[in-house]
Amino acid sequence: MTTIHDHSLPPLEPDLVGWEPVVGAIRKQIAQRREELNMQQSVLDFTAARADRDAGMSRAHDAAARRDEDWPDAAYGFLVRYARTHEQFISEELTAMADRMGYSSPADPRAWGAIFQRAARNNIIQRIGYGVSQRRHLSPTPLWRSLVFGGSAA
């Protein structure tokens, strides 16, 4: 029995034995088509997911701005200052520090996403990989590198 991508092809029926070259060619075409389909499925289109992510960040950002019109600029300023003294970080390290220092928190922490994206667009930070989030049950979370790092805060 020939196995292709976990799909088994049955052996030839006894009355088709003379057709082995034809059946072999058909099986080869089936295998090639399955491979093409597998390759197409592995190339995912994230366009809709990115649009949904951006829309969610925008809604959370706008809600935070309605609650406190100064929050977006204050949060951005905090991120810039934090990046000057922290070479690499994940978002929850920054937001935990903001909370400890008494900065107002948005009702939805996803509002910070728009602040991080703004900082990335302005070449303040750059995503360089993934860190581990304790708050999100050890899920991967973006790891940011500061592009304005000037040394440790003492």
Rank of each mutant, 00 (worst) to 15 (best):
V22E: 13
R81M: 07
Q126Y: 10
Q32Y: 10
R127K: 14
G151R: 07
S58E: 04
M97L: 09
N122Q: 15
R81F: 02
G131C: 07
F149K: 03
R135P: 00
W144M: 07
R118H: 03
E93S: 02
G24T: 14
I30W: 11
E93Y: 05
P10S: 10
T85Q: 09
G113W: 01
A154M: 12
D54E: 10
L79N: 02
T3P: 01
K28F: 11
L9K: 06
D70Y: 12
G131V: 02
D108R: 00
Y82N: 03
T2S: 13
R34G: 10
A31E: 05
A83E: 02
T95V: 02
E93T: 01
D73H: 09
P21R: 06
Q40E: 12
R59P: 08
V22T: 12
M101H: 14
R127S: 11
R67S: 03
A119I: 03
M57N: 05
Q41E: 15
V17G: 10
A96N: 07
G24N: 13
A107N: 10
N123C: 10
I124H: 01
A111D: 04
I125H: 01
D45P: 01
H86V: 06
I128W: 07
D70F: 12
Y130G: 04
S146N: 10
R118Y: 03
P106S: 06
R27F: 13
Q40G: 08
L44P: 00
L37E: 15
P10F: 07
R110L: 09
P21T: 04
S105D: 13
H5V: 01
Y76V: 02
Y82S: 04
N38F: 08
I125A: 00
R34P: 01
D108M: 00
P11V: 04
F78P: 02
A60E: 05
R121L: 07
G129S: 04
T95H: 00
R110F: 09
P109G: 12
T85G: 05
S146A: 13
M97A: 08
T95C: 08
D45L: 08
V17Q: 12
P142F: 03
L147C: 11
A83N: 06
V22R: 11
D73E: 11
H5F: 11
P72G: 05
I26S: 14
I115N: 03
A31I: 02
R34F: 10
A55E: 09
Y103M: 08
I128A: 08
Q32E: 12
P11S: 09
